[in-house]
């Protein structure tokens, strides 16, 4: 059976990280499972985790009064999500809702923040990797804003 360490080592997000860095990260990681319909987090709640989706599908929702939940993005296996744990005030900006049974690796934010603070090299490395994910999402959302199918 694949261990958490093996999984993280093989995931593109952690590609090239030395083994002792991965060991440090594994210390903050655990496997989690969410049933269809479960709410992983809600806007405004404390962001004390981030996730690497192993299987399933998660909807990122914005609640709009009068309209209910509007899904603005879905995430599938392999994707990394949740970066509010990186930036004060460490609160989620969106809701995350499970639309297909989901298995993920959850990384404990408090544990990670401590480790990254005491190891600035690894801290910088993680920020760089998150910046890449955030840039890709931002780019995709800009294209979405262009309303490309009716331009």
């Amino acid at each position: 059976m694949e261990t958490l360490k093996q999984y993280l080592q093989e995931h593109p997000f952690f590609e090239g990280l030395p083994e002792n860095d991965v060991d440090l990260l594994v210390g903050c990681a655990k496997n989690v499972r969410f049933e269809t319909g479960a709410q992983i987090f809600r806007e405004g709640e404390k962001a004390n985790q981030f996730f690497i989706l192993r299987h399933g599908r998660v909807a990122i929702d914005i609640y709009s009064p009068g309209k209910g939940n509007i899904t603005v993005e879905t995430l599938d296996a392999g994707e990394v999500f949740g970066w509010s744990w990186l930036v004060p005030p460490f609160c989620w900006n969106f809701d995350a809702r499970v639309i297909e049974l989901t298995r993920a690796v959850a990384m404990d934010a408090e544990c990670l923040r401590k480790k990254l603070k005491s190891d600035p090299r690894l801290g910088y490395e993680m920020f760089k990797r998150f910046a890449k994910v955030m840039t890709q999402r931002l780019q995709a959302q800009r294209v979405q804003l262009l309303d490309v199918y009716s331009a």
């Binding site: 209910g68 899904t71 199918y149």
Partner: peptide, 21 residues
């Protein structure tokens, strides 16, 4: 689709996001 409300259970995001996989 770019955005969805209610019972939509498929992908939400731009069509280009479907290309890598």
């Amino acid at each position: 689709v770019d955005r969805a409300a209610g019972s939509w259970h498929s992908n939400v995001g731009v069509v280009t996001k479907l290309i890598p996989k």
